[in-house]
């Protein structure tokens, strides 16, 4: 029982981190059908820049703010100069964003060195609570809370703001949004920057959780985020958080019982979903 709960909480925490990464990806794809393989690079940059600031100032909050800031900045640059020139062309998108992903990863190593960097949570998030005879690790609980809060925030923005309505409509039919006189490219830039900020936040939060960060972490998690986007349905935030939870929990249990199959099982789920419900398990678009 204890083990079960622990693995579940662990899976939930991982799920939330994947969700933060997938949230931007799914909206980016849903809105403009842009395949962005550089998303993992933004995640890794958030991680490195945030950790650097955290270690420098000894303030975890400063690290988080720094990560979000670098996410927004890199998001802006990526959208303007990498994505915009290849709107509407998937092959070019894959090539250029994969290339940019490699550039981002290599730059990390140039700036911060090729070695792993060890990170621990701040004192106030270290340790655990004991409820009954179940140990809840504080930092994991913290990640779950942040993930749920972010989901709530995105959900509220989509449901109850002007830009949120445009985004939801754009996911359904972007040509029609344009024919209403709305500049969807501008909206897309904002969404892209917000998505990049969440990816960077995810990268920062994962550092003390994983204990170390390294230059190739972007690719590793981006794959999971892509799986989540496919399972959850392109452009569907609620689908994403459900799928991320699923992938996180499966990953957690598999890593404990049959670690070598962990990624394979998630891939398998994605393949099955693609086969029987290609629009995603929770898709909105018919």
């Amino acid at each position: 029982m204890e083990l079960f709960i622990n693995l579940t909480i662990n899976g939930l925490a991982t799920g939330m981190l994947i969700f933060l990464l997938a949230a931007g990806l799914t909206l980016i794809f849903g809105l403009m059908s842009v395949l962005n393989f550089a998303h993992g690079g933004l995640f890794a940059w958030g991680s490195y820049a945030g950790v650097w600031l955290y270690l420098l100032t000894n303030s975890f909050i400063a690290g988080i703010i720094g990560a979000i800031f670098i996410g927004i900045l890199l998001g802006f640059i990526t959208e303007k100069w990498i994505i915009q020139p290849v709107y509407g062309n998937h092959v070019q998108q894959i090539l250029i964003t994969l290339g940019f992903m490699i550039v981002l990863s290599e730059l990390l190593k140039v700036i911060w060195g090729p070695n792993q960097i060890a990170v621990t949570p701040p004192a106030y998030l270290t340790g655990s609570w004991e409820i009954g005879n179940i140990l809840i690790i504080k930092y994991r609980a913290f990640i779950i809370v942040v993930g749920l809060l972010m989901y709530g925030l995105i959900y509220y923005m989509l449901k109850h703001t002007k830009i949120g309505l445009i985004v939801r409509a754009g996911v359904i039919n972007k040509e029609m949004v344009q024919s209403l006189g709305i500049n969807i490219k501008r909206i897309f830039l904002y969404v892209f920057m917000a998505g990049a900020a969440m990816a960077a936040l995810s990268g920062m939060l994962i550092a003390p959780y994983a204990g170390v960060i390294h230059g190739n972490m972007g690719m590793e998690y981006a794959i999971l985020a892509f799986i989540v986007v496919v399972i959850g349905g392109m452009g569907n935030i609620t689908g994403s958080i459900l799928a991320a939870t699923l992938v996180g929990i499966i990953g957690s249990f598999m890593a404990y019982y049959v670690p070598e199959l962990s990624l394979a099982v998630n891939m398998l789920i994605m393949a099955v979903v693609l086969l029987f419900r290609p629009q995603g398990l929770f898709a909105l678009k018919g």
């Binding site: 309505l165 939801r168 409509a169 359904i172 039919n173 209403l180 709305i182 018919g286």
Partner: peptide, 14 residues
């Protein structure tokens, strides 16, 4: 040409 998954009011509000 309407947005099928938005409410009637949301369609017009957009």
């Amino acid at each position: 040409n309407v947005f099928p998954n938005l409410t009637v009011l949301e369609n017009v509000r957009l």
